[in-house]
């Protein structure tokens, strides 16, 4: 008797021995929470249709994940919140006027083609929400470029269609954009709070920054990718974005418009598809910023964030590999090929 009690005192288990409360599940649901202000602002500005689009997008994503995992007799993991996050992020990138089959198709593509077929959470090369967005952008080019004037009323109104600030900037220049909203101050304030045409969840920079601040404070995301992303984009906008030669561009305007804030904090920082080493994250951010501005200023699309991040997603494994640290205690590898 005595003996067996003593034996039980020594519990042998494999590491890790210290477990934190912060599971994947916990982090993903926190990101969902952090996106809530932006979603609410989108609904506020663009009316109940915006809520319907987000709802369809999330529901489809969750159902697709459930259906796929059931059909393949895998463990159903819809409670980890990642399908909700994909659906929510995808919904927030849609124009508020799209018919409801677009969030349906896009969420399906995001979950089934971009996530589950690659092996599920943790194995996807590309950000699923952005693949869904790219898919519908290419499949329904006309519907995906109808933008609504924000109404700010929570009601059904036949909203006027219009162009986004980036679209105006690209086609007609800064002067036209200023005419639209009066003064610079007006323009900036409108863009800061989200009173501008654009995708559902990308317009309200304040709401997005609130969510981002929460994630940064809880250290769920690090500053490296957003800061290098935004500063590269801002720098390039300042140097090459102006119409009167070099160094006349307006970096603030470029950073406040389009989906760059949403993407830099919530999509480029996706754990699965971005590098996990700090130095690599900075390279990743610079690449995203560079490609975004290249597409915005020289490419055919007014907004380039989506393709920029998807392209940099391809490089994530390569970046991670080239900045791999040496194993502690191992002999330093010599020669050109490390």
């Amino acid at each position: 008797m005595e003996r067996s009690r003593d034996q039980n005192r020594l519990i042998v288990s494999t590491s890790p021995h210290i477990r934190s409360e912060e599971t994947t599940q916990h982090i993903v649901w926190s990101v969902n929470l952090a996106l809530l202000p932006a979603a609410l602002m989108g609904i506020y500005f663009f009316g109940p249709m915006a809520a319907a689009i987000i709802a369809v997008s999330i529901t489809t994503a969750v159902l697709c994940e459930y259906g796929y995992q059931k059909a393949l007799k895998k463990r159903v993991t819809i409670d980890d919140g990642s399908a909700v996050l994909t659906g929510l992020l995808f919904g927030l990138t849609l124009p508020p006027s799209v018919p409801l089959y677009i969030p349906f198709v896009g969420s399906f593509v995001a979950i089934v083609l971009a996530k589950q077929l690659f092996g599920g959470l943790g194995f996807n090369i590309f950000n699923p929400a952005l693949i869904g967005r790219a898919f519908v952008q290419i499949s329904f080019p006309k519907l995906m470029t109808v933008w609504l004037e924000p109404t700010a009323a929570f009601v059904f109104i036949d909203a006027k269609t219009t162009a986004t600030p980036l679209g105006i900037l690209k086609e007609e220049g800064l002067q036209k954009l200023l005419e639209h909203s009066g003064t610079y101050l007006n323009l900036y304030t409108n863009m800061l709070f989200g009173h501008r045409p654009g995708s559902l969840g990308e317009t309200s920079v304040v709401a997005l920054l609130m969510g981002a601040a929460f994630l940064l404070y809880r250290r769920y995301i690090s500053w490296h990718i957003p800061v290098s992303f935004l500063s590269t984009a801002g720098l390039l906008a300042w140097v090459f974005g102006g119409s009167e030669g070099l160094f006349t561009g307006d970096p603030v305007l470029h950073l406040l418009s389009g989906g760059i804030i949403l993407s830099a904090f919530f999509m480029a920082t996706d754990y699965v598809t971005s590098p996990s080493i700090r130095k690599g994250q900075i390279i990743f951010g610079i690449g995203c910023g560079f490609l975004t501005m290249l597409i915005r200023l020289k490419g055919g699309y007014p907004e380039g964030v989506m393709f920029a991040i998807l392209l940099m997603n391809c490089f994530s494994p390569l970046i991670d590999r080239s900045f791999r640290s040496n194993v502690f205690g191992a002999a330093e590898r010599k020669g050109l090929l490390k």
Partner: peptide, 13 residues
């Protein structure tokens, strides 16, 4: 229905 399918990217899909 899905314009992407006649584009090269859709070909891969």
């Amino acid at each position: 229905p899905l314009l992407i399918l006649v584009l090269p990217a859709g070909g891969f899909f």
